[in-house]
């Protein structure tokens, strides 16, 4: 296991897209000290801002210290395990393709943006545009799984094409905006106007959204057996989804009852927003 302990007190943010376990496998500690980290309009070697020790060949990397002002951690990683013991900055795990990125604290905006595979676990709160898309892109998240232990900001899963986002707490406004497919779940409910412009996909919320767009259909009762499969998938990844069982009559029980609204009827109209019947 490799440990990188950040010793950086400056207020200028860093961009550390080079910190990803799959790129460390064949490198020595001396090589890692020289990895360029962007600071403003120039780079500095990693060794100048962090202590690096351990074995890089294991594919397991632990980041210690305050990484909240360091952007793009694990960006594009394809394999291995990267754990941030504390908060992480913007764009963490963006465009991930595989492996696992675990953030013990909070994550900044755009975490997991446009990721195509792997697992991103955020123990604390997640910022805006979680699993979202960058300006100009035709799709956001295209695969993989994002698990959030607390709350998430606005525009979770915007233009999401495939994959799973599960938030144990609350989600912000405009969740799943323009969603193409995939599954987003908010155990604690979400903000206003979820699913605006969604074509397909599913948004699960712990309670009826405060403001459901008028372009969504009248709610109908349903017993979605697939939610049990969904909950099992999350449990297999280690997420405590007992919160679902507290919802409604059994939550994720195969016979649990939910209400469903379909939309967005301004678009394809094959998306769905579901919440437990109480």
């Amino acid at each position: 296991m490799l440990t990188i302990r950040l010793e950086y007190g400056d207020s200028v943010p860093l961009e550390a897209g080079a910190i990803r376990p799959d790129m460390f496998l064949d490198k020595t500690l001396a090589d890692l000290q020289k990895i360029p980290i962007w600071r403003g309009n120039s780079t500095i070697p990693l060794g100048e801002i962090a202590r690096v020790f351990g074995d890089p060949s294991t594919g397991r990397v632990i980041l210690e210290g305050d990484w909240s002002r360091v952007r793009r951690l694990g960006e594009g990683m394809t394999s291995g395990f990267l754990r941030v013991r504390g908060p992480a900055g913007l764009h963490s795990g963006a465009r991930m393709k595989g492996g696992m990125l675990q953030i013990d604290g909070e994550a900044g905006d755009w975490a997991g943006a446009e990721m195509t595979g792997g697992v991103l676990i955020i123990q604390g709160n997640a910022g805006n545009c979680l699993g979202g898309r960058y300006i100009g892109s035709r799709a956001g998240m295209r695969g993989g799984t994002i698990l959030v232990g607390k709350n998430a900001g606005n525009e979770v899963g915007a233009l999401m094409r495939r994959g799973v986002i599960s938030v144990l707490g609350k989600g912000g406004d405009h969740a799943g905006a323009g969603m193409i497919a995939g599954t987003i779940a908010f155990c604690g409910g979400c903000g206003i106007r979820p699913g605006a412009g969604m074509r397909r996909g599913s948004i699960l919320t712990g309670r009826r959204p405060d403001s459901l767009l008028p372009t969504f259909s009248k709610e109908i009762p349903t017993q979605p057996g697939w939610i049990f499969l969904f909950a099992n998938h999350l449990r297999g990844l280690g997420q405590d989804n007992s919160g679902w069982q507290l919802l409604s009559k059994g939550g994720n029980h195969p016979k649990s009852k939910w209400l469903k609204s379909s939309g967005d009827l301004l678009g394809l109209g094959k998306g769905e927003i579901l919440w437990p019947e109480v």
Partner: peptide, 21 residues
């Protein structure tokens, strides 16, 4: 409707008592 959880993909086909998965 397709649902892909991990490596597994499931199909939800609407039928008269709900969905066939």
């Amino acid at each position: 409707i397709s649902k892909k959880f991990g490596e597994k993909r499931f199909w939800r086909i609407p039928v008269m008592d709900g969905e066939f998965i």
